[in-house]
Design a protein around this nucleic acid. Structure first.
Lengths: 193, 193
DNA sequence: TGTACATCAGTGAACGCGCGTTCACTGATGTAC
DNA sequence: TGTACATCAGTGAACGCGCGTTCACTGATGTAC
């Protein structure tokens, strides 16, 4: 049952897409190789023609999911969308860092290196659109805001208390807004010195 | 081999302590019931005399680890310690939320409810020591800062890039400081309106 | 206080199950002529 | 362009393994008298 080279490339891409969806939904351990292959429309035996091991799939899936991240058009709208109910409820098609960062400590070095590249790219993208007097200040704001956004989303997803979960998203959103103005930061710096 | 009631209570407590350590280090799935019992100095068969199931252990471990959280004496020192290298390197004896929040989406409702109570308590504790004009503003600052702290620590632990990992901790620390002054927040509010 | 015995905390073998991975096989692909 | 055949992508049974959980058993505990 050999398939064409084009078909093989499509199959490989489909495995990565479905693995990205399933891993974000359930975590790496709770998704079997057979489950990924079935979602991609194949049987489990063919998996090792595409990847060396499940660890290899994990590393490549992180790079694949991290590579297809959205551009930031309007920063305020982008933050609103990130800290929204739909994003909280649908990790399987959302931010791979928020969905997977908590699992990375137990992963192989290649996977952790993939995640480092995805995170570095995200911080660089955010730094470009961040307000601030100089690039160091913009990068600091990017890291601080990104930590708060990822943290709020992970915490909001981790609990069984809808009111507290909603509050985490909305108050973190408001907290980011309160600190984001360059005037506020200048005032803080002037007050401190 | 029956043991005294006092010994049984001590054994149960030891199971919870060791489970808290192992779960924070490896995650729930990667730690077996037998491994927890061995760490507590017993064999796996006795486990079900103490807990209904592994899910039950998970829920009770979260409550146990969350209940023994440190008081906040000096806020600035406490934040420094939280966003420090030792804390990043030793999740097994650190914040249970940073170590376990990423695993909670896949856990049973009881475990998620336990985590909600631990998180609510942490936010309440932080709110009490947070500067701010009124309680709503202090709670907002507590939620924003806590999200940033947890997010920075989770991201710093998730990658294989020491320089970026260090930067996440130190820059999030600096970002929190820049926004924490009440003067800065007032300035932001005045500028916005 | 001393004795007989019912209780029950902990032991360790055993269970069914799903996992990652391997491998002999199949048959469509794509190339040599 | 047509044909023969080597290649190899995908199939599905099988493997060894570790998991959560069960259970018959052991023997120290603690109580009834």
């Amino acid at each position: 049952m050999k398939v064409s080279q084009e078909q093989k490339a499509q199959n490989r891409s489909r495995i990565l897409t479905e693995a990205g969806r399933l891993f974000r939904e359930k975590g790496f351990d709770a998704v079997s190789v057979a489950e990924v292959m079935k979602a991609a429309g194949m049987t489990h035996g063919g998996f090792y023609g595409h990847f060396q091991s499940k660890d290899d799939l994990v590393a490549q899936t992180i790079a694949h999911a991290g590579g297809s991240q959205s551009m930031i058009d309007d920063l305020s709208v982008w933050i609103d969308t990130y800290l929204s109910e739909p994003h909280r409820e649908h990790p399987e098609q959302g931010c791979p860092m928020a969905a997977l960062a908590g699992f990375m400590r137990q992963q192989a070095p290649e996977a952790r290196a993939s995640m480092a590249r995805v995170l570095a790219a995200q911080i660089a993208t955010l730094t470009d659109v961040m307000p601030g007097a100089d690039s160091a200040e913009r990068r600091r704001a990017a890291i601080g805001n990104w930590s708060a956004m990822v943290g709020a989303l992970i915490l909001a997803r981790s609990i069984d208390n809808p009111a507290l979960s909603d509050e985490l998203l909305s108050e973190t959103r408001a907290w980011i807004d309160a600190g984001r103005s360059p005037d506020a930061k200048s005032a803080a710096r002037n007050t401190a010195t």
